[in-house]
Structure formats: C-alpha cells, structure tokens
Amino acid sequence: MDATLVLGQQGRLVIPAEVRSTLGLAPGDEMHLRVEGRRVILERQEDAVAELRGFASEVSKQRSLVDELLAERRQAAKRSE
C-alpha cells in the first residue's frame, strides 16, 4: 500500500484512513518514529517493542551481557593505565 502525505504548516502529517484501518490504528495509539539515513520509519509502538524483544530472544539465557560489558570495560581500563 502506498500513500502520499502532505506536511502541514505546523509539521503535522495525517495518516490516511485506509492506512490507519489496515494497520489497526486508532486515535490515541502510540507510534514509534526512527530515522534511517534520509528515511522516516513510523511503526506501532507494540511492533517496535516486539522487534526489540525478538533480538533479545536470540541471546542464550546462560550468557550475561552485563558481565561481558563489565569485562570489556575492565580490559579497556587496564590498557589505558
């Protein structure tokens, strides 16, 4: 689905009704916006959260990212002494 939006005087965009309906958006829904290069990505808040949780699910439960980060910081501190 494609849509053309016009940026209003106050910087507002209106998402067309057909797009809102297709995405299941309702007034008051929170959206997440991110910029990638010269692109603007707008997605439902829950979809952004689910994507982040998906990344974390690939990390082994036995692996401690905090411990790894602390070890890296300690090594960096030793090198700079």
Rank of each mutant, 00 (worst) to 15 (best):
52 L>Y: 05
52 L>T: 04
52 L>A: 13
53 R>E: 08
53 R>C: 02
53 R>H: 06
54 G>Y: 05
54 G>V: 05
54 G>L: 03
55 F>N: 05
55 F>W: 14
55 F>E: 10
55 F>C: 07
56 A>R: 14
56 A>K: 10
56 A>C: 13
56 A>G: 06
56 A>M: 14
57 S>T: 11
57 S>V: 07
57 S>P: 01
58 E>Y: 11
58 E>A: 14
58 E>S: 14
59 V>T: 09
59 V>Y: 05
59 V>A: 10
60 S>E: 12
60 S>R: 14
63 R>S: 04
63 R>P: 00
63 R>M: 04
64 S>T: 08
65 L>K: 04
65 L>Q: 09
65 L>E: 11
66 V>C: 03
66 V>Q: 09
66 V>L: 15
66 V>S: 13
67 D>L: 08
67 D>V: 03
67 D>K: 11
67 D>S: 08
68 E>I: 00
68 E>D: 15
68 E>M: 06
69 L>K: 10
69 L>H: 11
71 A>N: 08
71 A>V: 01
71 A>T: 02
72 E>Q: 13
72 E>W: 06
72 E>I: 03
73 R>W: 02
73 R>A: 13
73 R>Y: 05
73 R>G: 00
74 R>V: 07
74 R>A: 14
74 R>Y: 06
75 Q>W: 00
75 Q>H: 05
76 A>E: 15
76 A>K: 11
76 A>T: 10
76 A>F: 03
76 A>Q: 13
77 A>F: 12
77 A>C: 04
78 K>C: 00
78 K>Y: 04
78 K>R: 15
79 R>N: 07
79 R>I: 01
79 R>H: 03
79 R>E: 13
80 S>H: 10
80 S>T: 04
81 E>A: 12
81 E>P: 00
81 E>R: 14
81 E>K: 12
